[in-house]
């Protein structure tokens, strides 16, 4: 029974990681043939580095992910505090809307924003991408920070207020330090969500601002190429770093 259980776990992990492992290993393949191993080489990484359009797309993506994560963390954290601490009209409706955004298929959000941007005359490019990315990252930040807020003793806040702290002092010296790990984790989640997104970006992107996932998408549709393996490996490493950082922040009490 025991070996059966461990064997099963091993098999599922193999399924999860074999494709990624193959992709990473073959990014170091010397051959142009993406399926036949012909020795180690860093050629494809060197080619990535020489590909100016690709580097530009990567820089655009990093700029977009950083700004979208920062803006959504700012708004999302304030929203989580408001939802946790204040009573206001339409609170349930707001909660419901955030839930709907999180659960609805990305493509539904994507087309609705495309229609909005065209109608309002927002030029498709960095701005439209930023607004769209902030919108789909927001609920995830709210949920992450809200979970942290619900997880600690609310009496600490009341104690601060009773001891004469103003609302602002309480926020700054009590609440923010407590939720800081969740805020960082929310930021990292927003950063990776933005960096990974294909579905929303393909609708609201413009010719002036190319992002990496869409560039990969057009490369992948054309076929299997070792350069794509190298690029994918770089992205995988970036996600791994972001996840490790977020786990580090969330583990801090």
């Amino acid at each position: 029974m025991r070996w059966l259980k461990h064997g099963y776990l091993g098999l599922v992990y193999l399924l999860l990681y074999l494709p990624i492992a193959v992709l990473v290993v073959f990014s170091f393949n010397a051959s142009r043939n993406p399926y036949r191993w012909q020795g180690l080489s860093l050629e494809w990484y060197a080619r990535l580095w020489d590909n100016d359009a690709l580097i530009q797309a990567a820089a655009n993506s990093l700029l977009l992910a950083t700004t979208a994560a920062t803006l959504s963390t700012l708004i999302g954290t304030l929203t989580a505090i408001a939802l946790h601490r204040y009573r206001f009209r339409g609170k349930r409706l707001l909660n419901g809307m955030l839930f709907v955004v999180m659960m609805s298929p990305d493509i539904v959000l994507a087309i609705s924003l495309l229609v909005l941007f065209i109608l309002l005359g927002v030029k498709l490019g960095y701005l439209s991408l930023l607004l769209a990315h902030v919108t789909f990252c927001l609920p995830f930040v709210v949920v992450t920070v809200y979970a942290r807020l619900s997880g600690f003793n609310a009496q600490i806040i009341e104690a601060a207020r009773d001891l004469g702290a103003s609302e602002w002092q309480m926020l700054r010296t009590v609440l923010v330090p407590i939720i800081f790990p969740a805020v960082m984790a929310g930021w990292l989640l927003g950063f990776t969500l933005s960096l990974d997104d294909v579905v929303v970006s393909i609708f609201v992107t413009g010719p002036t601002f190319e992002v990496l996932p869409l560039r990969i998408y057009s490369m992948v549709r054309l076929g299997v190429k070792p350069e794509v393996n190298a690029l994918a490996t770089v992205l995988l490493m970036l996600s791994l770093l972001a996840l490790l950082a977020s786990q580090y922040f969330l583990a801090r009490k």
Binding site: L16, Y17, P34, V220, L235
Partner: peptide, 26 residues
């Protein structure tokens, strides 16, 4: 952690990885 990790990695990249495995000469 090993289950969450793929969740954080680009799903397009993972789709492509699947293509590598399933290709006719894969």
């Amino acid at each position: 952690f090993l289950v969450i990790l793929p969740f954080w990695t680009n799903s397009l990249v993972r789709t492509y990885a699947m293509k590598l495995l399933l290709a006719t000469n894969g």
